[in-house]
Each structure stands twice: as structure tokens, then as C-alpha cells.
């Protein structure tokens, strides 16, 4: 299986003497969705920031297709798209201009952009809002703009941070469906979330972070085996990992 993202011995944080992450290692392969789960403050967002190259590790590396951000910044960034936990939009741009600007920034051909954008807008019920400014968007719609921009690029790696909050049920359904589709087409997806029931159904593997370290990782079967309870749900495994209590 092709490794897309490779994180090795990553330590880092907001100040050198108080690292948030301690020696974190994991991979994301092509054709898989990896769930990144953990309590508030476990280090999920910090991990994501390191993978995005927004923070520099004090030790260890994060490689996309073998290259680090320091080696090839534009190439590294061009292979991933990011769906942030809190939508970040340009208040000055309409929905259509957001999509166009994203396509331009990622170097998509204009024809490719136009061919991809209509079906995506239709899927998320946003076709009639392309001239709207973010000021008129609800939280869910803002989240949809982020999702549209990410899927528009069709990168090899998706970094998704808590995508479900604020989305309507139809939006969640469309999002999951597209994620499955791009996974089948060879993308790798790293998704952080607290919605464990959804994660359990859609993620191929899990990384459970606790206090900046990887507490458990593997497929659901492997996790069950590791804690010695073949009937455990992801909820129970999670609580075990973050409390140290056996279900």
C-alpha cells in the first residue's frame, strides 16, 4: 500500500520546553481513512498543524510522498487540502469567488475547475448561493464552503478537523459519500472527530491520542484485541484509552 503521509517521531508544541506532542508516529496510506481521536487538549489540533506545516516540529518529521515541507514547500502544500474545525472564509469574496480562488491557488486548469464545481455545488445544495457573501451564511453553510473548496482540489491527502459540527444531516451524508468516493479513487484522509459512532463506521484505522502521546492505534479489530475485549465499541475503547479503565 502506498504511503501518502508519514509522520515519524514527531515532538513539538508552542514552546520548546513544554512540548505538546511526544514522539508521535503514524502513516496515512492511499485508499484509507484514518480517524484521529482524543479528548479536548489531547493534541489533535497540534498534530494537524504540524502535518499542515503551520508549526515546526522540535524533533521528527512529517512527509507527504517522501518530501517534508521544509524541502519543497509548494509541492508539499499542493498535495493536501484542509478542512478546518472553524470555517475560515474571506468576508470580501462570494461563494463562487472562494471556489475560483481556491482552484487558481492550487493551479487547477480552468476547464477542470468548471467541470468539477457544478456537481459539487449541486451535491451540497449551494447552487443558488454562488453570489452570496459569507456574512449571510449560517455556520453550516460556512462549513460547506470549506468542504467544497477541499473536494474541488481533489488532492492526494485530506486533513479534516471535526467536519460534522453545524452541518445538516443531508450535508453530513453528502460529505461522507464524497469522502468514500475519493478514498476509492486513491486519496488518503486523516480525520479528527469526536463523533465516534460515525468514525467507527467510516474510518479504516484509528489513532487515539492521550496527553500528546499515541495511546492506541490500529484497526477496530486490533484495538479490541489490544484491550482484550472483542465486544468493545469505539466509545468504550476511547474511554479506556483516556482513563486507563478496562471496559
Amino acid at each position: 500500500m502506498k504511503k501518502i503521509l508519514e509522520v515519524r517521531g514527531l515532538s513539538g508544541g508552542y514552546s520548546p520546553d513544554r512540548p505538546v506532542l511526544h514522539d508521535v508516529s503514524f502513516n496515512v496510506h492511499a485508499n484509507e481513512i484514518v480517524g484521529l481521536i482524543g479528548l479536548n487538549g489531547a493534541g489533535k489540533s497540534t498534530t494537524i498543524k504540524h502535518v499542515l506545516g503551520l508549526m515546526e516540529p522540535s524533533k521528527g518529521t512529517s512527509r507527504i510522498n517522501g518530501k517534508t515541507f521544509q524541502e519543497e514547500p509548494e509541492e508539499y502544500r499542493g498535495q493536501l487540502s484542509y478542512i478546518p474545525e472553524t470555517p475560515i472564509l474571506y468576508e470580501e469574496l462570494t461563494l463562487w469567488e472562494h471556489l475560483e480562488m481556491t482552484a487558481m491557488a492550487y493551479g487547477l486548469e480552468e476547464q477542470t475547475f468548471l467541470a468539477r464545481v457544478r456537481p459539487l455545488l449541486a451535491e451540497f445544495n449551494m447552487e443558488n448561493k454562488i453570489k452570496w457573501f459569507p456574512g449571510h451564511f449560517s455556520k453550516g453553510m460556512r462549513q460547506k464552503v470549506m468542504i467544497l473548496c477541499a473536494f474541488l482540489v481533489e488532492p492526494e491527502l485530506y486533513i479534516v478537523d471535526e467536519p460534522f459540527v453545524g452541518l445538516d444531516p443531508l450535508g453530513i451524508h453528502s460529505f461522507l459519500e464524497l469522502m468514500e468516493k475519493f478514498k476509492q479513487n486513491g486519496a488518503g484522509i486523516l480525520m479528527s472527530t469526536h463523533i465516534l459512532a460515525t468514525a467507527e463506521r467510516h474510518c479504516d484505522r484509528f489513532i487515539i491520542l492521550h496527553e500528546g502521546k499515541i495511546a492506541l492505534k490500529g484497526t477496530l479489530e486490533e484495538l479490541k484485541h489490544e484491550i482484550g475485549n472483542p465486544a468493545a465499541t469505539l466509545d468504550e475503547i476511547y474511554i479506556y484509552a483516556s482513563r486507563g479503565k478496562r471496559p
Binding site: 499542515l52 506545516g53 503551520l54 509548494e74 508539499y76 502544500r77 499542493g78 478546518p84 474571506y90
Partner: peptide
């Protein structure tokens, strides 16, 4: 704005 950093643009 994080997009400014994330775009693969020089």
C-alpha cells in the same frame, strides 16, 4: 488567515 499559508503559491 490560514489559507494564505496553505496555498501552494509562492
Amino acid at each position: 488567515n490560514v489559507w494564505f499559508e496553505l496555498y501552494p503559491v509562492k
